[in-house]
Design a protein around this nucleic acid. Structure first.
Lengths: 210, 210
DNA sequence: TCCAAAACCTAACACTAGTTAGAAAAAACA
DNA sequence: TGTTTTTTCTAACTAGTGTTAGGTTTTGGA
């Protein structure tokens, strides 16, 4: 099990959900306390009973957004047997990452969209979390490499940046009700591990439309 | 040659550059006309001589951001000989895309960061440009596939989303003075076309550090 | 040199932002 | 029930927002 998240009252969570949704749609400066209040069926002043400033709100949204992804991926990896192959580990992490960012779209999208607009101090703390997540992925790739399961010519750091970039971008185009997360995860793994020219037919959806 | 961009005076461009930089750092609502004015050595009121509203400014930044990428990639592809292989076309497009978004980082980053915060009408017009760019990539992949240069099991639409996502994410971590764009482009192509497990050593940087 | 057009500035307007203090209502507990 | 605690609301303040009208400076050609 991964680290527990801080507990919170129902009202606190309602405000936080509303904040995430508003930050996601309108950015940091574009989101007003009054808009968050409307979304959570409160008046603007009442928010300050739960969070003492707008900065504290955005901090909570950012941290929850990343921690959710970190914990989901770590739990999925921990649940794997020792004997799991490098490919299985990669596909598992891909699927867990996708599940987390799609099912918590408000938080993860908000995280991505406002990250560059937030005061320096807040950004720095959040960056540490991000770095540790990057290290997790680096370990997955290096581990699979060390096991000799694939002798790659690619630089692992670049490969990691490439994979995480592609995954994070998913929230931009993924539409609920369209493709299944599992299918997307399998395709992604296929492109990354095998490449476009590899293992013909073994993992393809061939043609499932747009 | 790709479509010509609208001409503009020196002052107009100075204001636009300043706007792109500010939008990039502080988002749409977070960027004030006074901040743009400061950055371009003007007073707030003077901006309205060149652009009649903040909305017109953001529209110009968004359009220039995408058009630059579209034109750069299209020109690079047009310069290729008829005999170019699918792999060469992909690597060329990858390199052109990276060059465009890195050398015009203010515009492309601004484009990405404020896209979701902008009034609906503006976003719609810009979306048409984005879709046409997606079609360009789809053609590259399908063309290479039709030529029989690789029989891929991967779904091409997903592969395209995957590739563009990874490329667009580059602006988040790329630091000028670090890796060369050409190296990154070659590695990316290698991962996409060959996969992590493919063509050992033929394209790898093996270990060039972070 | 003079003059008209282009470029810029000043000062203000109406409005909205985050935040706060204190009153009011709801919930919890005796 | 009455009383205390938790939660919410009201009303306001200061600071800053996009935008504009009208005046001032700069530019470039006759």
């Amino acid at each position: 099990m991964a680290k527990k998240l801080a507990k919170s009252t129902i009202s606190q969570r309602r405000v936080l959900d509303a904040a995430a949704k508003m930050f996601r749609d309108y950015g940091y400066a574009g989101t007003t306390m009054r808009a968050i209040a409307d979304e959570s069926d409160l008046k603007a002043g009442s928010i300050y009973y739960h969070y003492k400033s707008k900065d504290e709100l955005i901090t909570a949204v950012l941290d929850l957004g990343i921690n959710t992804v970190i914990n989901t991926v770590q739990d999925a990896l921990d649940a794997l047997p020792e004997t799991a192959t490098g490919r299985e580990r990669i596909e598992t992490a891909v699927r867990a990452h996708l599940s987390a960012i799609i099912e918590n779209g408000d938080y993860t999208l908000a995280t991505r969209r406002v990250f560059g607009q937030v005061p320096e101090a807040i950004r720095l703390k959040n960056t540490k979390l991000r770095d540790s997540y990057g290290a997790t992925w680096q370990n997955i790739l290096r581990d699979a490499h060390d096991r000799g399961e694939f002798q790659t010519g690619a630089d692992l750091t670049l490969a990691r940046l490439f994979i995480l970039g592609a995954l994070n971008w998913t929230v931009e185009w993924y539409k609920p009700g369209g493709r299944m997360i599992d299918d997307v995860a399998r395709e992604f793994t296929s492109v990354v591990v095998d490449g476009l020219a590899g293992q013909q037919g073994s993992f393809g959806l061939s043609d499932v439309g747009t």
